[in-house]
């Protein structure tokens, strides 16, 4: 038998089949069936009529949204200053901001929890704020990196061209730098918003709370209610799909600025 390069793809095809397509099929099956294996839309209807699941969805969305906004507001100026500064050890400074990612996740959140308790006394007083703080702390590097990359890749002569055509530094920023760094921002948003919607470790560790999408699914499965859990997972998948399509649609085929360590 002749060896062809196509054969190299076989392991990956098997992998895709086993770990992507099959689980998806199982997910669909469970989401649209009841306990006796019959087709039903009850899981779907149930999700949108249950105030608990709906409330979690809204809450998760709010947490993710606020976290993303805070991340953008913190990361953009930082990335801009870093990218346009003339300091030589630029990448080293960027590394400093990314460094926390290398420290164990639960250790970081535990430390954050202690700091928050020290400041606030009782964490339960501001659950939303604390969740956003935890998530922001966790996801900020994912926002800084792509924005930094997209700003540093910006052709400097474009800014000179804007100034040459009568724009002062501020106008040049809003008309050139900002729009051209949007791919980086979008990349950061999709790397922060989606995980923030499902990340339950932060909540779990701060409050032992399950009031977020990720842990909701977990709690359904823990109670062996596969059908309801699958439907929530499917709905989440759908939301993510829609979101990704939306953020992708305004791209002009630019390379996404996403360097992940």
């Amino acid at each position: 038998m002749r060896f062809s390069r196509k054969n190299l793809g076989i392991p990956y095809a098997v992998f895709l089949l086993l770990f992507v397509l099959m689980p998806l099929a199982v997910l669909f099956y469970y989401a649209f069936t009841n306990g006796s294996g019959q087709f039903t839309l009850m899981n779907f209807i149930g999700f949108f009529t249950n105030p608990n699941t709906l409330g979690t969805l809204v809450y998760s969305f709010a947490v993710a949204f606020v976290t993303t906004v805070v991340c953008v507001l913190l990361a953009y100026p930082l990335a801009y200053i870093l990218a346009s500064s003339k300091i030589r050890a630029k990448s080293a400074v960027v590394m400093l901001f990314v460094l926390p990612m290398w420290i164990n996740f639960s250790l970081r959140i535990t430390a954050l929890k202690e700091v928050l308790i020290f400041i606030e006394g009782n964490l339960a007083m501001y659950p939303f704020t604390n969740t956003v703080i935890g998530m922001t702390y966790d996801f900020l590097p994912f926002m800084i990196l792509p924005i930094y990359t997209s700003i540093s890749r910006l052709d400097h002569s474009l800014l000179e061209a804007a100034q040459d055509l009568g724009a002062n530094e501020r106008e040049a920023f809003f008309k050139v730098t900002l729009p051209l760094s949007m791919p980086g921002v979008m990349s950061g948003v999709s790397m922060v918003f989606l995980p923030a919607m499902t990340n339950y470790v932060v909540l779990d560790m701060l409050y032992n709370s399950t009031y977020i999408m990720g842990s909701l699914i977990g709690s359904y499965f823990a109670a062996y209610y596969w059908h309801g859990g699958s439907m929530i997972a499917l709905i989440l998948l759908l939301i993510i799909c829609i979101f990704t399509l939306l953020t992708d649609s305004d791209e002009t085929g630019d390379v996404r600025g996403g360097t992940i360590l």
Binding site: D155, S157, L158, E160, A161, D164, L180, T252
Partner: peptide, 17 residues
């Protein structure tokens, strides 16, 4: 530069993409 009545054609054009 933005206060000078002078305009430039850049080496690599620098058109806004």
């Amino acid at each position: 530069p933005y206060e000078r009545p002078i305009n430039t054609v850049f080496q690599r054009y620098a058109l806004f993409p």
